[in-house]
Amino acid sequence: MRRQIPLMLVLVLGIFFFIQFFVPSRLSTNIYQVSLQWLILISAFAIVLAIGSLVNHHLLKIKRRREHWPYSYATLAGLVVMSLLGILGRFPGLGLLDEIYYRLYLFVQAPMDAAMFAILAFYMASASYRAFRARSKEALLLLVSGFFIMLGVIPLGALIWDRIPDIAEWIMMVPNMAAKRGILFGVGLGITATSLKIILGIERSWLGGGGK
């Protein structure tokens, strides 16, 4: 029974929303809109579990004095301070808190975000190095085509040989496009089959162990 209800729900809702896609009427579109809103609201409650998990994870770390436990204070402090400032700052008379919240976002969180993004460029270099040690025939193809595209999008490419931008464009439009389409056919079928398996209850690992 504990498993039957969720399985029935998935089946019924799955079939309903499959049909909904083909029904343009007002009622049908309204149901769709409302469901999307409800889903956001329902999922918002899962955030409570997520935060619980994070806090618990760090509290345990501190309690058991696991390796690097003092850093957990930084996470917990960041979480508590940021959320309190942001929520309390909305109340009248507490505008100063909102100001600090805003600055914490702008000068603490956002720079770390941007720095992490910028690190990508360094990793690009090491990834390129890895690609240049092409270990197989296939990897060599990846390397050569990547090389042409990199040269093709910068002015230097045209200086070396004026046909390079053309070759780069051709690679993008012909073999790249063909591969992309071929992959998308497979992905499309894979997604559809996975959805079908969930609706029909063939794939049911999400039911967890407790409900048997």
């Binding site: 579990l49 997520a50 690992s205 039911l207 967890g208 407790g210």
Partner: peptide, 27 residues
């Protein structure tokens, strides 16, 4: 957050299917 809750159920299910629900670590 939702993926987190489902992932937890999935791992729990795997451990109990193998017959070792006790070995499952919540964290």
């Amino acid at each position: 957050p939702v993926v987190y809750t489902v992932a937890q159920e999935v791992v729990k299910e795997a451990y109990s299917e193998i017959g070792r629900p006790d070995a499952y670590n919540h964290d």
